[in-house]
Amino acid sequence: MIVTYRDALNQALREEMERDDRVFLMGEEVAVYQGAYKVSKGLLSEFGEMRVVDTPITELGFAGVGVGAAMVGLRPVIEFMSWNFALLALDQVVNSAAKMLYMSGGQYPIPMVFRGPSGAALQLAAQHSQAWESWLAHIPGLKVVTPGTPADAKGLLKSAIRDDNPVVVLEGEMLYNTKGDVPEGDHLVPLGAAELKREGDHCSIITNGKMILVALQVADQLASEGIRVDVLDLRTVRPLDVPAITASVRKTNRAVVLEEGWEMAGIGAQIVDTIQRECFDDLDAPVLRVHQADTPMPYAKNLERAAKPDAAKTIAAVKKVMYVAN
C-alpha cells in the first residue's frame, strides 16, 4: 500500500498502542493538535487522554516522566517536536534512560522510545537544522534508528516500541510527505539490520536517514553513465550492521560514505574505521566522505544549499574513488 512517511509512523503508533496497553504517547501538541507534523492524527480520540498526553513546554520534564513511567513497567513513546529541542532533555536521555539498567544491576529496563524530526529542512537556520545521530550513537545503552522510507519508518518504529532498551528514532522533517510502498500487516524491520536499497558492483554508497533519497538519485544518474553502485541504507546506526558494510565493500572494493551531519566525529568516521579494519586488503581506493560543511547551518538559501551534502558532491566523490573524470 502506498502511504506517506507520516502515515506510516501513525500506523505504527496506532498498531502498537492497540497491541499493548502499556504503550502511551507523550509530548508537546501530540494530543489535541495531533502533533506538530500530524504524526499522532486520530490517536487522542481512539486512545483517550491518559494514553495520548499533551505536556507543557518542558522537554527535560516529560523525557524524565517517560523514564519514571518506564520504571514501573510502561512503554512510553516520547515525541520531541524537534530533536533540536531535545538538547534540553539530553540529561534524561543520556544519564537516566541509557544508564538506568546498568546502574541498577539489571533491575530496571527502560523500554521507551524518544522520537521526532532531526536534521535540516529548508531555511530553518542554525539552531533548527542539525543531524544528531553521531551524538546519540556515541552512548552505550541507546539504540539509534534513522528511517529513510515510509516502510522503514513503520517497521523500525514498531520494533523500537517493542524493544526492551531505550531507542532513539530520528525522523526526517523533509520526509513526512514522501510516499512509498508499505507492506500490509504487522510490518517489522529488525533493529540493527541495514538494507541494500540498490545493487551495483563499481562502488558502495553507504548512508542513512534522508540521505538515502540523495543516494538513490545519485545511483540513477550514475547508472546513465554506466557506473553501477551499491546503495547501502544503514537504517540503524547503533547497533551498526558491520557484516552488511563489509559485504558490500568486499564486492565493490570502493566506498563513499554519505551523511547528513558534520565531518568531525561523524557517523561516517565510524564507518570508515570499520572498513579500514575489516576490508583493508579489499580496497582499491581511499574511502571518501560526503557531509555537511563545517559550519552552523546558514539561513540564506544559496548558502544552505552550499553547506548541505547533495547529489553533485556525492557523484564527484564516487568518480574520485573510481579514478574517473567528473
Binding site: M71, V72, G73
Partner: peptide, 20 residues
C-alpha cells in the same frame, strides 16, 4: 547521583502508577 534528575522520574512513576 545526577542532581535533581530523579524529580521528573518521580512524576513519571506517579503517572504510571495512576495509569495502572
Amino acid at each position: 547521583i545526577s542532581i535533581a534528575a530523579q524529580l521528573p522520574h518521580a512524576v513519571g512513576l506517579a503517572w504510571g502508577l495512576r495509569l495502572q
